[in-house]
Structure formats: structure tokens, C-alpha cells
């Protein structure tokens, strides 16, 4: 977990000495570590950095058979399309609304759950609960939505119960007004358990003597939380928050695509579903690339901005 070290700044060591050793020697000394890094490095070079070069097709009208170089240049046409399209604006607004809801509700949820889990004394019970709450993460969205449909759908368990009692059905799954809270709840149900892993790891790194000292000083549970626990994992929270900023314009695809027909595009068209219909179904790779590029650039600015803010106000940051 390299991120833990970056955030926690625990990997220091005798820095002065390290730098006085020549690079060649240091490489040789840590050769095995570098060897371990290689596959990961190769992965990033090959599948992340190299494809970045392909972004130039955003300025082309790319047709696979014609080829990368022979396809005609079209200037900024693909980008203009993006900013003049009313459907894109709708998708953008929905995406940002949903992501803000996610940030406010779904982001802190694993932290809260982790704190609860952390306070369970019985190791066995804790592990049992952890295993159960991890499970939904491994279900695909297709299954998750089918499950929700079975329970909350118009012909689902709850509505069938109501209908059998001659009561009116309640419309949850195909109600555009409820859609946004619904997707946030689905995300939380699916991933809240998984999200606790990193917080729990951070929590175990807090020196228990700090708690003991706090208790001796008369700190109650609330004070221990505010003065020991949270400061102890603040770097992790900030780190995750900064990284979260990078995905402010990506909701993911499946969850929305699967439910889009039920509630309509006014509520459920997000950038990912928009790109799917506009670009991928018609084989318009250039347009898809333009959207991806804009999104990537904006995300990069969001991360840098969030990092700057974090550093300014808390002294903690990613970079």
C-alpha cells in the first residue's frame, strides 16, 4: 500500500545519507525492490502513458480502416460539438449533481462504518461483519440492480406485499424524482464495506498509547475520536478526498445505463451514457476521445486544485 506511506510520511529514514550514496550504488543496493516495481511500471507505461499519445485523434475524424495518420484533421470540431450539444449539458449537470451527492453522502459513509467497526472489541464479530459488508462490492451492477428491482420494483417484494393488501403500489425504481438519491444509496450499499478497508488499515496504525494517555487525561469517547482518531487518519481522509476529486465527472456507466430507460434521460443521462450512445454505438471514436480528453484535463485540474487547498488549510497533501 504505497499510498499509505506517501500520505503518512512514515517512509523517511536517514535521508541525508541516502543522497550522498551514488545513484548506481543505490540502484544496485535496492535492486530487488526495483525489480518488483518493474511489472507495475511496465503496465503504466504500456497501458496508461502510451495510449495518451493516441489522444491526437480527438482532432481527427478517425476511421479505423483508413488509419490513424490518413484520417482527416478536423480541428476543434469534436470539442465544439461537445459544448454546443444540449444533451451533453444535461448529462454534465446530472453527472455533477450525482457526484456532489456521492461526495456528501457516499464518501464519508465508509469512514463512519470503519469507526464503528474499529470500536468493536470482539475480533471475531468484527471479522464476520467485515466479510458480510465486503460482499456486495463483488457483485456486478447488473446483479445489484436486479436485486434492488426484486425488492423495490413495481412488481418487487414490497409492492407485491402492498398490492396483496389492496394498497397502492409505490413507485421507487422508475421515479425520476427519486433517481439521484436512489443511485447514491445503491452505491453506498454496494461499496461502503469495501471502502472501510483503507480506513481500518489507517486506524490500526494509530499508536494505542495515545488512547491510553488520552483516557488518563480524562478524555471521553467523543474527545478521543476528535483528538486522537481523526487526526491520526486525517492524512488518509485527505488523500482519498483529493483522489475522489479526479472522478467528479465520471459516474461510471453500468449503473446508469441499466436504469436509464426506467426513469428517462432527464434524470439519468450522465456523461458515460451520453458517450456510449453518441460515440461508441456509432463508432465515433474521435468524439469519444475528445470527451475523454476534456474530462481528463478537468479532473487533473480538480486534483491539483484540491491538493493545493488541502495543503493550504491542513498542511497535508498528495504532492
Amino acid at each position: 500500500m504505497a499510498t499509505l506511506r506517501i500520505g503518512g510520511k512514515s517512509s523517511s529514514g536517514p535521508r541525508g545519507k541516502t543522497f550522498s550514496t551514488p545513484l548506481r550504488k543505490r540502484l544496485w543496493r535496492d535492486r530487488w525492490m526495483y525489480l518488483f516495481i518493474l511489472p507495475g511500471l511496465a503496465y503504466f507505461l504500456l497501458f496508461i502513458y502510451l495510449p495518451i499519445l493516441g489522444n491526437f485523434i480527438a482532432w481527427k475524424d478517425y476511421a479505423p480502416f483508413v488509419g490513424l495518420w490518413e484520417s482527416p484533421w478536423v480541428g476543434w470540431a469534436n470539442f465544439e460539438l461537445l459544448f454546443t450539444d444540449p444533451d451533453f449539458q444535461r448529462a454534465l449537470i446530472n453527472t455533477v449533481q450525482i457526484e456532489i451527492l456521492q461526495l456528501v453522502f457516499a464518501f464519508p459513509a465508509p469512514l463512519a462504518l470503519a469507526l464503528l467497526l474499529h470500536s468493536i472489541m470482539s475480533e471475531r464479530l468484527k471479522r464476520a461483519i467485515q466479510s458480510i459488508v465486503y460482499l456486495p462490492h463483488f457483485l456486478s451492477w447488473v446483479i445489484v440492480i436486479a436485486l434492488w428491482q426484486q425488492i423495490f420494483g413495481g412488481a418487487g417484494f414490497i409492492n407485491q406485499l402492498l398490492a396483496n393488501q389492496d394498497m397502492d403500489r409505490i413507485n421507487v425504481m422508475s421515479n425520476p424524482d427519486l433517481f439521484k438519491p436512489l443511485v447514491v444509496l445503491q452505491s453506498m450499499w454496494k461499496d461502503v464495506g469495501w471502502g472501510t478497508i483503507i480506513f481500518l488499515a489507517a486506524l490500526t496504525r494509530i499508536d494505542t498509547t495515545l488512547y491510553e494517555a488520552a483516557v488518563i487525561d480524562g478524555a471521553n469517547g467523543r474527545r478521543r475520536l476528535l483528538d486522537v482518531t481523526l487526526p491520526g487518519i486525517m492524512s488518509i481522509i485527505i488523500l482519498l478526498l483529493i483522489l475522489r476529486m479526479g472522478s467528479m465527472f465520471s459516474t461510471g456507466f453500468e449503473q446508469y445505463f441499466l436504469q436509464r430507460n426506467a426513469v428517462g434521460p432527464e434524470a439519468a443521462e450522465v456523461i458515460d451514457t451520453f458517450v456510449y450512445t453518441r460515440a461508441f454505438q456509432s463508432g465515433d471514436w474521435s468524439f469519444a476521445t475528445a470527451v475523454g480528453l476534456v474530462r481528463g484535463v478537468v479532473a487533473a485540474f480538480m486534483i491539483i486544485g484540491a491538493n493545493w487547498l488541502a495543503k493550504r488549510f491542513t498542511g497535508e497533501g498528495l504532492l
Binding site: 428491482q149 420494483g153 413495481g154 412488481a155 418487487g156 409492492n159 403500489r169 413507485n171 425504481m173 422508475s174 441499466l258 436504469q259 430507460n261 426506467a262 426513469v263
Partner: peptide, 9 residues
């Protein structure tokens, strides 16, 4: 129509 018809695959 089935109440969940709109979202059916």
C-alpha cells in the same frame, strides 16, 4: 403493462 416494463431488457 408490467409496472417495471420501462426498464426491462
Amino acid at each position: 403493462y408490467h409496472p417495471d416494463a420501462a426498464g426491462m431488457t
